[in-house]
Design a protein around this nucleic acid. Structure first.
Lengths: 230, 230
DNA sequence: CCCTGAAACTTGATATATCAGATTTCAAAA
DNA sequence: TTTTGAAATCTGATATATCAAGTTTCAGGG
């Protein structure tokens, strides 16, 4: 069922406008990583001027970045008093719950809406994951993991849920590598991914949703201990 | 089990710092309402200077408010091109799914963590809801509805999930009044609320979670048709 | 008549200046 | 020694100015 939108097929040469990161985008990302990596510890007060000076920018983009972090819940703003970092294990735990909660309906929607193209992508990704798992190719597995979840997000056709779930990541590449280093974990994760994909391809929303939730909760808890220990 | 924090009990005279709304807080709230009420239609481009001028403020607090809206997904920022309103029925539908998804673990946590005080509050609120439902006291029902969900949020001890769910509201007081005007709906909603409260008080996370999800999905769809028709 | 491209204009992105609330300091009074 | 409160200071909140990317306009060449 081809769509005749009259739209020019996006040239592969075109630079997506969202790729050209703005200063505030950089700042937001930097601060976010500094917070979730613990470099800016919870409770830390952020002085707008000092911080802007250190980052060698003006306060305007910094303020904008801080407002984004505020909306994500990573910092708290005390009116007329300042910005305070708010991120600890219990917050991360809630992020896992939120991610699991949000990925569930996404998986269900994907199972309802997936088309042949999406099915093909998912199947192919699972096959590549199988190979990478057997080869214990960690870097590739990390990449494929994103491809996998990205394919599901795309198939779900959801915009808002997808954006929200993207905000629930509290670990970076190094934590991922630690997790994926464990072959047992990789095999388990692969079985889960396979089960999720099968449910979506078979058009079983309930099954897909349940499996996705279980997968995110289980692996999330693993990251939690990896990042916070205990 | 009294806590000896050494903290002065907050005087009832004290003005909570978060009550003193900042300019950007006002602006954010104003814009949010304008968007969800449809006064600023989806696709509408927002010119920062014009808008700031109309609102008789400078662009700085406006920009901050726009960043918050961006993080909530209500506007999209096209770098170097402008801010565009992004809110339609399908987005609202996703907000319902998100709200249902997020309220579920909150209800489960509440069932796990609720203490005697929380149980008492919930029970009392349900009793008041029963009375207000019988009396068809719409204004009171709307208020009690917030008390009810607020009590559950408090009992859950969650911070992040609670804040996220608060961002998933896409209707205002007038839509609520329309919904609550229907006596049948009120009775149904009451039964649902009662069932949720009972599950939480009985300490049944699964049951609480499932009932909460069903309730939010059902009533959410009602709001959807009320706001968007169809 | 259509294509090209440079100038004019629009507008978001960034920087800087100013204002005002909150905290701290410290000396004087109790 | 403790308390008080006013001045000094810090710092977020707001306003304004400047910069640069993107769009539009339109004259000139094909």
């Amino acid at each position: 069922m081809e769509e005749a939108t009259g739209q020019e097929p996006r040239s592969s040469l075109a630079i997506a406008p969202e790729a050209r990161q703005s200063l505030r985008g950089h700042v937001h990302q930097q601060l976010r990583m500094a917070i979730i990596s613990g470099r800016l510890p919870s409770g830390q007060r952020l002085n707008e001027r000092l911080l802007a000076e250190e980052m060698e920018i003006s306060t305007t983009p910094l303020k904008e970045a801080l407002r984004q972090l505020e909306a994500e819940g990573l910092v708290e703003v005390l009116p007329r008093r300042g910005v305070v970092v708010r991120f600890d294990a219990s917050f991360a735990e809630e992020m896992i719950l939120a991610r699991a909660a949000l990925e569930s309906p996404i998986a269900a929607l994907a199972a309802e809406r997936v088309d042949d193209d999406g099915r093909a992508r998912l199947g192919a990704t699972v096959q590549l994951m199988r190979e990478a798992t057997e080869a214990a190719d960690i870097a590739r597995l990390i990449l494929l993991n994103e491809t996998f979840h990205g394919a599901i997000h795309a198939a779900s056709g959801s915009r808002h849920l997808t954006r929200m779930v993207a905000q629930q990541q509290f670990y970076d590449g190094s934590a991922r590598r630690v997790i994926h280093r464990d072959a047992g974990e990789s095999r388990l994760a692969f079985e889960e991914h396979k089960g999720i994909a099968e449910a979506i391809i078979a058009g079983q929303p309930q099954e897909a949703s349940a499996r996705m939730s279980a997968h995110v909760l289980r692996s999330g808890r693993l990251y939690l201990t990896a990042v916070f220990g205990r």
